[in-house]
Amino acid sequence: MTADREQILSRVRAALAPLPVRAALPDYDAELTVARKLLGDRDLLTVFAERIKLVNGLLLTDVAALVGHLRAGGWMRGYCDPLLWPQLATHFGPEFTVETVFDRTRVDHFAFSITRAVGAIAETGTIILNDRTTASRLGALTPWVHVTVLDRAAIYPDLGHAIAALGDDPNVIWVTGPSKTADVEGILIEGVHGPGQQIALVV
């Protein structure tokens, strides 16, 4: 392995040695990577609401609406981040069964899950999760309906701002709508390995 390292690096050096000049690293204005046409000068929550709808995500603004949505879909068994459940429990009736420990031996038992998001991206309708605030990676992925609780003050305008805010978390994941595929004859199907419904509950 060490031999391979030396071999690769010496081959790289030999390949580059004949170049009279090396290509310089270009600089560019941050504005270059902003889809300004999508943002306009509207408020970020308005843009986020519009964009998440376009990727078939769902934005809700109160817990009662969420409970109604889950009941209407027949999603009665769920997993909830233990830090969130004390505030949410009173809204859920006794017909719901909600657990605060995700049991990986029963992934299909859970029809929905509720975890925390650390932010969102307005121009793409993206929800941002990271490892330290997501109570369970599996819990946030395997149920059919995934709900993230999002603070409206944590909406970044564009990708550049969201990247600048990555911080030192070892695993940040941007989620833009439900899991999907078009592998079979180009036909869009949602809910492949992850959620078929991706919901942002903005508080």
């Binding site: 997501t134 070892p170 695993n171 994941i173 941007w174 992850g194």
Partner: peptide
């Protein structure tokens, strides 16, 4: 690639899971 603004999942991974994370 697919005429999407962004793919559904974009992961930024800098190492093994966080200590507090049960999965991964």
């Amino acid at each position: 690639a697919t005429a999407q603004q962004l793919t559904v999942y974009t992961e930024f991974i800098s190492g093994p899971k966080a200590a507090s994370q049960p999965d991964g």
